[in-house]
Structures are given as structure tokens and as C-alpha cells.
Design a protein around this nucleic acid. Structure first.
Length: 877
RNA sequence: GGGCAAGUAGCUCAGUUUGGUUAGAGCAAUUGAUUUACAUUCAAUAGGUCGUAGGUUCAAGUCCUACCUUGCCCACCA
């Protein structure tokens, strides 16, 4: 073992174990009737993705859980894979094309898709390799992609199923349109940002009486080109007499009517609203109610079209400026006010989305919601932390239909074919569609497939079962479904989690998972989201390179409460801890060869010395704390308690205590035993360094990754020994404190003289003199009545339990006296408070007995200490 | 506009579910240690009217009410 370096080398170790795990295929899961299954599906990262801190956190949390369950004897499956991420991926390849001066339309659909697949082939596994590097114990042999052939079958199956049930429909609606991506966006994909805009007041003259007018207010004046009415509230006295009258639309001089609609608020603006059914969702609804003409004034790229008269061909924002200028020039603009409002932006390219009238495919959500809502309400699925359940329920209750068609090419093309008369044939393939058409017309007809593809989430919502083989009902699906836990960030609760639950019920008749754990967002030290554009992102790969994956994982988890604020220095904590484990193991190996050879799996408590009995108790306490924290999703707590034990108890105390006792083979065995079990305890959090050291303990070839979790051995927990050792630790700590305070030179010993009423402690300390001497530089003396006064003095300094006297004139008596006076004053205050409390009848009658007893005890202690202090003070004087 | 969360040491956070001893940790600061498993180490010190104001209670960081500040989510008010 001498060849082991004193500095842990994460890079070498991590590479080694990644290879071993892979070669031995130990994370592979197969249905095993002898074991219980435990399944997690990964939130599939985008194929375009590169590992960021959010992934690192998400996957570390999942890995801790799955490793813990694996060690606890479950047949664990962690299903990995990637998402094709429609718009995002298409954008990447389109950007490449732009550099070559081409557009996707120049290539055509097939050639463009070929390019996309080539891109996927080359870069699509980047994120998977990065997740591997993190130590994620996924079953990599099962890695899925949402556009695999099997997966496409599942998507088609789902679409056809919903269509046949009447839950998929096609309609002309106002949707969110991104003029840059030139596709529809779902409501969730249109991010609303609060913007300082303007509110423009425009005068519309009456046709029959140009001296009279109605003033309307709008934030988007260019849309007036598509106005087909002005609406007022039917109960509004200002306008009721005008209902049905005609106005002249300025600039275009079209005639429009005044209509009455309850939607209009009398409070806002002037109480009169211009109605543009083709460019505003509310106006669209009004347009339908009143059968208004819908005039689409825009091209798909947001240039104004021929309906915009003189503005034909200009961009929407240019037209806004010109319309306002022209209105003003012609005297129609009344005023402009500042106005704050939320404007939708494309979540991919941040372009302002345009409400746009077009033909799209939708999923009817109301029927799907019912069981999914019920499942969370009745606890079939629990979401943690609990507050997210409310958010979920709230959203589900107000759900609207889901626009699932996208006007892009990368994705699952909608399995719909049209004939010349636009009749619809929904089928898995062109052949099937042809067959349907043939059956209908009795002869082959020309069919063309729907151009649009499905929303990416329409494939993702099938993830928990489509990855297991659905729609085929195979052994995997039977054994591993439903999955157990889903871990994700809050951002995709609606996009993904809610829809998966709906899909689980609709397609499988069962929940997709029983527990959802929502973790925080990783932010920088100032609380901002980490993003490339802000330049504040810390690259996890850089951290892995510099400090190791263990360090990255450890530091992320220890900082994970709610949102995680992180800066680069925080990763030193993890690096240091890995190094600590490494060096502690070195010490043990160097000194415990005999124990290693003789074996240390079973220990006989009776043969062990006090520190050894103590450390066993401490270990099992840490074991139960850590285990239960993992079960309750309290990962930072789990990590904390295991670190506290290993570093604070095992390294700082136990290893120090036994340094002089390695001659005792039972000490060696205990050290080995506790080290080995600690490695198991720590393994889910920091798999690499633990695996490496464990392999040196175990000559055999079994990996720690598949070793059994330590079993709580109550017979090895000696409570009395634990308490005794704790006392000794207290004494030594106090002595150390005194040494610092009184500035005792390192080579000087401090004598401890025990008070006569503390016989058991005296014996304890004497029995452990060697340890006391080594760790605290202490000599234990017998009591000499002649120095009773001095004994009293020192006793008071450190409380009632022990007595300490520093050698020869090291105490600054004046300072000590002053300190003692202060202490007495403080103690008397507490005594006063306690006495009045105990004199309070209400307290005595109502408080629980144990509380009262404790208070009494505390009072007694305080009184005793105070009297001792007083005695000392008078002695010193 | 509606909802949710947070506010505790200079900084980052535990603790609040179920009220009960003297409110804990890590980092930073200060003082010291090291014939060495580890300076990626060890010990000690100092630092807090628990956002503000009320209330309930024998007892409040913890429960209730209002307010202040910050962050997040949802929402079609032109």
C-alpha cells in the first residue's frame, strides 16, 4: 500500500471504474421474479444538449436513489435516453445551413432530414457520454431516442388511438405563431414577459356622422388593418345607443359595425374595443360569437399581406410605426399612454410571438385530465415537495386543449393522409392509408401526407412505457412498469410530468410512476439562472476535469435545499472530502494488514476497547440517519450525516484515538469493519472513490456498486460505551479549549484533577489516560486535599464536571476574575427567570412532566455552578 | 390581477411538519498546532433582538393575522 499517493487522483480512478462497470455490465436490468423491481426513467435530455449543472444535479439525485435501491436488493432499472427536441435541433442544423448561405427550403424536406440525421449520428450521443462520466448508473444498453423506429410506432399508435376516440381534432384557431421559426407554439412554449409598451387611443368616425366618433385603445395598432368590428359592453350607458351603427376604419376606409359583447370591460381604456378576429384570441372568440369576417393581414413571417393596403409587404413592427404616424397625420390618433403588459416570446428564439389564425391539430384535454387529477388528489401519485401538488391541481383544473402540430420538419410526421377532396385517412403508413382509400373509393387514389410534425412533447409524454416496448406488451413492460419515482426540475411539470400522467392512464390504464420529486434550479452565486448568454454558467465538465465527478456530485447535493446557489469554490468541499476518504483509507491499510488477513466481517464486542465500541455505535446511528434521509428525499441531510460521521467521528476522533493501538488486532478489525461499511454508506453519493478503496479492502471481484447495503446490527451498539466515550471527547475538547485560551505551550502538559463527587468519570479518564495524554496533552492526577482551593477554582472555570489546573502560573488571574464575575451575573439572570417560571402555577400544572423535570434540573445545576463560582472568587481574593 | 415560496451569524443554508433546555452547521474572519494518513489537515475563538408589528400560549424561530422585501409560477383584459 505504500505506493498509494497521498493525493487522490480522481481522473485515473474514474476512468478505471467507468470501464469496469461497463465491461461487467453491472447496471443491466432484466426482469427477475426473485427480486422486486425499482424503476426510474431519465428525463431525456435534448440531443442538442451538452451537460449543464441542471443535468448534473438531476442525474446525481437519480443516481443516489437508484444506487441506494440497488444496494438494498432491488432489481433496479434506470432507463436512459434522449429527446429529439424538434425546434431546437432543427435550429442547430438550420444555422449551419445559413452559414453556407442556404435555407432548408432550398434543400427540400428529404435532403434536410438527411442532414439532421447525420448531425444526430455525429453529435447525438454527446450528452449520453457526459452523463456516463458523471457516474450515472443507467442501463446504457437500453438507451432510447424519441425517434427510434420502435418509438415512432408508439407515437403513431397513440395518435391513432386518440383520433379514433375523438380526442384529436383539426381546427382553425388562433395559436401562438413564431414568425422566425415559422411554426405554431403551444401555450407553454410562448413565454410571457412583462414589457413596457404603449397604449394607443385611436378615433374611429361614424359613417353617418363624421363629426361623432368612438375612441378605442390598443397595444398593437398595426392590427387595426384587420379590424372587422368595434365591441362595447351591452350595459355600458355611454355606448348602448350606438350598437349596430357603422364606423369607418381609418386608413383603409372599410366599414365596420359596433357590436355588443359581455367580454368588454367598461373599466379598461375607453370601454370600446377594436375587434381583430384573425389576430387576437379574444377577438377570435368574439368573431365566432358574432360571425364576423376574419381578415388575416399577415404572411407567415409577420410581413403584412395584401389585406393591409398600402402597407403590403412591410414587417409588422415597421407597419406599427407607419400606422401610428399616418393616424397622427390624419388626426385619428388621440393619445399614447405608457402601458405595462405581458408579451409572448418564443421559448426557443425569443422572437415576439404573433397570435395567428391557422389550421392546426389539437388534443382534447378535458377527458384526459380527469383520472390524472384524481390520482394526485387521492394520493395515488404524490408530488414532493408537497406545494407542487397545488400547482399541479390548479393547472390541471384550468387546462386548455393542446396544440400538437408544428410546422417544422424534424419530428414525427403526423400520420394523416389527404386525398384530392381533403378527406382524411389516419393510418400508420401510406400503404394502410391507401388501403383505406381503396376501400372507400374502390380504386387507388392519389394521397399526400400531412406536412406538419407533432409537438416534441407528444412523443415525450409516452416515455415511461414507450421506452419499455409499448405498444407491445412484453416482459419488460410487465415487470418494470409502472416506474417508481420521477425526478425533475419544476420547469417541466406541465410540459412533461402532467402529460405523462395523463398518457399513463389513457394508454396503459395505470399511473406511470407513484412518486414525483421536484428539485430546485441551479443558480449562480447571485441567484441568477445559469445560462450561456449571461456568461455565468459553470461547466460541470470542467469541474469533473479539475476536481472529479465525485466532487461535483458531492458539492451539488450538499448545497441542494431549494434552489441551489453555486460558485466554483464550492466544489472544493467535494474534492476535499474525496481526498479525506482516500487518505483515511491509506492510514487504515498501512496499519491493519493483520486484521485484513484474519478477516473482520464479524466483531466481538467484548474484545473491543472503548473507542472501538463507541465508533460502532456512532456508525450505526449515522447509518439509520442517512438511510431514512434518502428514503424521504432529503439528500443534503443524508449527505451531511454521513459526512459528519466519517470525517468528524471516524477520522477526527477514532483514527486519532487508535493511532497508538494498532498492535491490537481487534482495533485493526474494527477500523476495517467501520471503513468498509462507511464506504457502502457513502457510495451512492460518491461512487468512484468509494469503489476504488473498497476494491482494496476486498480482494474479490465484486463491485461496491452491487454490494449489499449495511444492515443495522443493534447488538454492536453499546450505548454505555457510546456515552462514556462522548464524555472523554468532551473532556479532551474542553482541555483543548483551555490550552488555547490560556496559551499553554505545545509541549506543556495540562493536569486534570478530578473532583471527588465524580468517581465514575475519574475512573473513566484514568482508564483512558493514554488517549487523554496523546490527544489532549493531559496528565490525570489524584486529588490532593491541600490544593482543594485551587481545585475549586479550576472546577468553576470549566463547569461542574471536571477540574483542570494548568501548570505553574499560566493563568491571568485578573482577567479570569473579571470573566467569572460576568458569568455569575449571567447565570443569576437565568436562575431568576427559571425560578419565576417554576413558581408559575400555570406552568407547573400544564407543562409536561419531563419538561418541568428538566427545568428543575437545569436550575439546580445553575445554582450549584454559581455557588462554586462564588466560592472560587472569594478564594482568589 | 391570482397563486406559491423565501427572509435565521459577514456569506450559503439547516431547524418550523408535531411549540419545550442555552437557535445549529459549512464557508469567510481571528488565534494557535503539525518529528505527519490528509495543509485538499487539526483545534479553538468570535459573530444572531430568527424581516417588522400585533395575537394565541405557562412557553413562539416554530402556530395565527397584517404588513414590508425578494424570487418564482400562472393569467386574454384590448
Amino acid at each position: 500500500m505504500n505506493e498509494l499517493s497521498s493525493r487522490y487522483n480522481p481522473k485515473e480512478t474514474e476512468e478505471k471504474w467507468l470501464k469496469v462497470w461497463k465491461d461487467r455490465n453491472i447496471f443491466h436490468a432484466t426482469p427477475n421474479p426473485a427480486k422486486k423491481p425499482f424503476t426510474i426513467v431519465i428525463p431525456p435530455p435534448n440531443v442538442t444538449g451538452i451537460l449543464h449543472m441542471g443535468h448534473a444535479l438531476n442525474n446525481t439525485l437519480q443516481d443516489i436513489l437508484i444506487r441506494y435501491k440497488r444496494m438494498n436488493g432491488f432489481e433496479t432499472l434506470w432507463m436512459p435516453g434522449t429527446d429529439h427536441a424538434g425546434i431546437a435541433t432543427q435550429n442547430v442544423v438550420e444555422k449551419q445551413l445559413t452559414k453556407e448561405g442556404k435555407r432548408r427550403q432550398d434543400l427540400g424536406r428529404d435532403a434536410f432530414l438527411k442532414k439532421l440525421w447525420a448531425w444526430k449520428q455525429e453529435y447525438g450521443n454527446t450528452i449520453i457520454h457526459q452523463l456516463e462520466k458523471l457516474g450515472s448508473s443507467c442501463d446504457w444498453s437500453r438507451t432510447r431516442f424519441t425517434m427510434d423506429d420502435d418509438y415512432s410506432e408508439a407515437v403513431k399508435e397513440a395518435f391513432i388511438h386518440l383520433y379514433q376516440k375523438g380526442l384529436v381534432y383539426q381546427g382553425r384557431y388562433i395559436i401562438n405563431w413564431c414568425p422566425r421559426c415559422q411554426t405554431a407554439l403551444s401555450d407553454e412554449e410562448a413565454e410571457h414577459q412583462e414589457k413596457n409598451g404603449k397604449l394607443y387611443y385611436i378615433r374611429y368616425l361614424f359613417k353617418n356622422n363624421p363629426k361623432e366618433s368612438v375612441i378605442v385603445a390598443t397595444t398593437r395598432p398595426e392590427t387595426m388593418l384587420g379590424d372587422t368590428a368595434v365591441a362595447v359592453n351591452p350595459k355600458d350607458p355611454r355606448y348602448s345607443k350606438f350598437i349596430g351603427q357603422a364606423l369607418i376604419l381609418p386608413l383603409l376606409n372599410r366599414e365596420i359595425k359596433i357590436i355588443a359583447d359581455d367580454f368588454v370591460s367598461t373599466e379598461f381604456g375607453t370601454g370600446a374595443v377594436k375587434v381583430t378576429p384573425a389576430h387576437d384570441p379574444n377577438d377570435f372568440a368574439m368573431g365566432q360569437r358574432h360571425k364576423l369576417e376574419m381578415i388575416n393581414i399577415m404572411h407567415a413571417d409577420a410581413r403584412i399581406n395584401e389585406h393591409g393596403g398600402q402597407y403590403n409587404g412591410l414587417d409588422r413592427f415597421e407597419v406599427r410605426k407607419r400606422v401610428v404616424a399616418d393616424l397622427e397625420a390624419q388626426g385619428f390618433l388621440v393619445k399614447i399612454e405608457d402601458h405595462k403588459h405581458a408579451v409572448g416570446h418564443c421559448y426557443r428564439c425569443d422572437t415576439v410571438v404573433e397570435p395567428y389564425l391557422s389550421k392546426q391539430w389539437f388534443v382534447k384535454m378535458k377527458p384526459l385530465v380527469k383520472p390524472a387529477l384524481e390520482a394526485v388528489k387521492n394520493g395515488t401519485i404524490t408530488i414532493k415537495p408537497e406545494r407542487w401538488e397545488k400547482v399541479y391541481i390548479n393547472w390541471m383544473e384550468e387546462i386548455r386543449d393542446w396544440c400538437i402540430s408544428r410546422q417544422i420538419w424534424w419530428g414525427h410526421r403526423i400520420p394523416v393522409w389527404y386525398d384530392k377532396e381533403d378527406n382524411i385517412f389516419v393510418a400508420k403508413s401510406e400503404e394502410e392509408a391507401q388501403a383505406q382509400a381503396h376501400a372507400k373509393y374502390g380504386k387507388p387514389v392519389d394521397l399526400r401526407q400531412e406536412e406538419d410534425v407533432l409537438d416534441t412533447w407528444f412523443s415525450s409524454w409516452l416515455w415511461p412505457f414507450a421506452t419499455l416496448g409499448w405498444p407491445k406488451e412484453n416482459a419488460d413492460l410487465k415487470y418494470f412498469y409502472p416506474t417508481n419515482v420521477l425526478m425533475t426540475a419544476s420547469e417541466i411539470l406541465f410540459f412533461w410530468v402532467a402529460r405523462m400522467i395523463m398518457a399513463g392512464y389513457e394508454f396503459k390504464g395505470k399511473v406511470p410512476f407513484t412518486e414525483v420529486f421536484i428539485h430546485g434550479t441551479v443558480r449562480d452565486a447571485k441567484g441568477r439562472k445559469m445560462s450561456k448568454s449571461l456568461g455565468n454558467a459553470i461547466d460541470p465538465l470542467e469541474i469533473i476535469e479539475e476536481y472529479g465527478a465525485d466532487a461535483l456530485r458531492f458539492s451539488l447535493i450538499i448545497n441542494s435545499g431549494q434552489d441551489i446557489f453555486i460558485s466554483k469554490e464550492k466544489f472544493e468541499i467535494g474534492r476535499n472530502f474525496a481526498n479525506k476518504i482516500w487518505n483515511a483509507s491509506r492510514l487504515v491499510f498501512l496499519n491493519c494488514q493483520q486484521g485484513l488477513e484474519e478477516g473482520f466481517e464479524t466483531l466481538e464486542l467484548a474484545k473491543l476497547d472503548l473507542p472501538s465500541r463507541w465508533i460502532l455505535g456512532a456508525f450505526y446511528q449515522a447509518l439509520s440517519k442517512t438511510s431514512s434521509a434518502i428514503e424521504f428525499f432529503r439528500y443534503s441531510e443524508a449527505e451531511n450525516s454521513m459526512q459528519d460521521f466519517f470525517w468528524g467521528d471516524f477520522c477526527d476522533w477514532y483514527l486519532e484515538l487508535i493511532k497508538g493501538k494498532f498492535g491490537d488486532v481487534n482495533v485493526q478489525k474494527t477500523a476495517l469493519f467501520v471503513l468498509k461499511n462507511s464506504l457502502k454508506l457513502m457510495h451512492p453519493f460518491i461512487p468512484f472513490v468509494t469503489e476504488e478503496t473498497y476494491s482494496r479492502l476486498n480482494a474479490g471481484d465484486k463491485c461496491l456498486s452491487v454490494a449489499p447495503w449495511p444492515v443495522l446490527q443493534k447488538e454492536l451498539m453499546d450505548k454505555e460505551a457510546f456515552n462514556q466515550m462522548q464524555t472523554i471527547i468532551d473532556v479532551i475538547s474542553t482541555i483543548r479549549n483551555i490550552r488555547t485560551q490560556w496559551n499553554v505551550k505545545p509541549n506543556d502538559s495540562v493536569d486534570v484533577i478530578l473532583s471527588p463527587d465524580n468517581v465514575s468519570v475519574e475512573r473513566l479518564l484514568k482508564e483512558n489516560q493514554a488517549d487523554m495524554q496523546r490527544l489532549g496533552r493531559v496528565r490525570i492526577l489524584t486529588i490532593d486535599p491541600k490544593i482543594q482551593a485551587v481545585k475549586d477554582a479550576a472546577s468553576a472555570l470549566v463547569g461542574s464536571l471536571k477540574v483542570f489546573i494548568p501548570l505553574g502560573g499560566l493563568v491571568d488571574l485578573a482577567a479570569e476574575k473579571k470573566r467569572m464575575v460576568q458569568e455569575i451575573v449571567q447565570k443569576q439572570k437565568s436562575i431568576g427567570a427559571l425560578q419565576s417560571r417554576l413558581a408559575n402555577e400555570a406552568f407547573v400544572s400544564q407543562a409536561p412532566q419531563d419538561v418541568i423535570a428538566k427545568e428543575k434540573e437545569r436550575l439546580a445545576t445553575l445554582q450549584k455552578e454559581t455557588s462554586e463560582l462564588n466560592k472560587v472568587l472569594s478564594n482568589l481574593a
